[in-house]
Design a protein around this nucleic acid. Structure first.
Length: 364
DNA sequence: GTATGCTTTCGGC
DNA sequence: TTACGGCCGAAAGCATAC
């Protein structure tokens, strides 16, 4: 039976959620913003609706620049409330999960799903299921989404990207090659700027070029593992399965300082709450961690990190604070500008229960 | 040299 | 003319081991 994988992406998610809450916004430019608190308009745009995008405003630009572009256009400037979108996301994922064989969320507003069994391997039936998922999200939450269906994750992902907003792209197995061929290699998962350059040096510009590439030459250029994956993906034959999410692999917090500094004591004091929060977040989700990272963003907005991996899972806040101080001291010596933003990250997460049994095993 | 795993940076929203 | 978050996972860079 042919495999049928889907990828769904909610359109301009945060801004659309705001439109649902207040429908009069729909005809206006809407920007959902993160305010840093440093000055009145200090911060950036997180998401913009399509009305705002048509006026040159997109995610990531400074709020003050966005306001300038939207001058006289009656913009709605909305403060981002993450918990609100998180709650909507949970309801959405739950709605989708009842209509698919397997669901793998990959972000707050997107997910892979598998409907092979439910559709009986039939793409007509699959398209109807996909349409019904879209309809249920529209009906229950008022939200539009863009969906792609295909025989692999790579095809489904490229499908959801092919038509938006409110798109449904069904790539039947026999249409896979003609769909993939003309796309730019940079659209493939696994191809960042470096890999793209490497591929261009081999004369590979499109996904079709990649599918027909000489495997030996490709291996030599980008490594065996990536080459093998890309050749498969480029022909729509990547075999990655849709697997239910395993939860986050890291937790981080970053804050913008009221004023630039490189005083380590001040930085560590500013981050003590954040440290306690991520530690308790990990612990309440049943996991421990081994790696602590200090993050800083300098006055010129360049970002730098420094980390330390403990030999055993670490949750002693005093020890973590001491290490954090050390990491920031090293960061401070390696850079020549003040810190504008500082943060922490914990990673190397593992299941606490496994760790307990492991240390018991070692200890006993 | 290449595979692997860890550290650092990048990029999307 | 400038303007500039917070969080995540992926990609790239690097060290180490064969």
């Amino acid at each position: 039976m042919p495999r049928i994988v889907g990828h769904i992406d909610l359109d301009y998610f945060y801004a659309q959620v705001e439109e649902v809450e207040n429908p009069s916004l729909k005809t206006r430019p809407v920007i959902v913003c993160v305010f840093s608190g440093r000055t009145e308009d200090s911060g950036v745009v997180s998401t913009a609706n399509y009305v705002a995008r048509a006026l040159g405003v997109k995610a990531g630009i400074p709020i003050s620049l966005a306001k300038k572009k939207l001058e006289g256009k009656d913009p709605a400037v909305i403060k981002m409330v993450h918990a609100k979108y998180e709650a909507v996301s949970e309801r959405i994922m739950s709605l989708i999960s009842t209509q698919v064989d397997a669901l793998e969320p990959t972000g707050i507003d997107e997910a892979f799903f598998d409907i092979t069994d439910r559709a009986g391997g039939d793409y007509e039936a699959a398209a109807a299921i996909a349409q019904s998922i879209k309809d249920s999200l529209k009906h229950e939450e008022g939200l539009t989404s863009s969906v792609g269906l295909g025989r692999s994750k790579a095809v489904a992902k490229l499908g959801s990207d092919a038509k938006k907003p409110d798109g449904l792209t069904v790539v039947k197995p026999e249409d896979t090659e003609s769909f993939l061929s003309p796309l730019d290699v940079s659209k493939l998962y696994g191809v960042g700027p470096k890999t793209e350059t490497a591929l261009l040096e081999l004369g590979l510009k499109t996904v079709g070029d990649l599918a027909r590439a000489d495997p030996t030459e490709l291996e030599r250029k980008i490594g065996r593992k990536l080459a093998a994956y890309l050749v498969q993906a480029a022909s729509g034959n990547d075999s990655d399965q849709v697997t239910p999410g395993q939860g986050p692999t890291q937790f981080s917090r970053i804050v913008t300082l009221k004023r630039d500094t490189r005083d380590i004591g001040e930085v560590v004091a500013q981050l003590s709450d954040a440290l306690a929060e991520v530690v308790s977040k990990a612990s309440s989700s049943g996991r421990s961690f081994k790696t602590l990272t200090a993050i800083c963003v300098l006055t010129d907005l360049s970002a730098h990190t420094k980390n330390h991996t403990f030999e055993a899972p670490q949750r002693d806040v005093a020890k973590l604070t001491e290490e954090l101080r050390k990491l920031f001291a090293e960061l401070g010596e390696s850079v020549d500008k003040d810190f504008r933003r500082v943060g922490i990250r914990i990673s190397g997460l593992s299941d606490s229960r496994d760790q307990v049994s492991l240390s018991e095993y070692i200890g006993g």
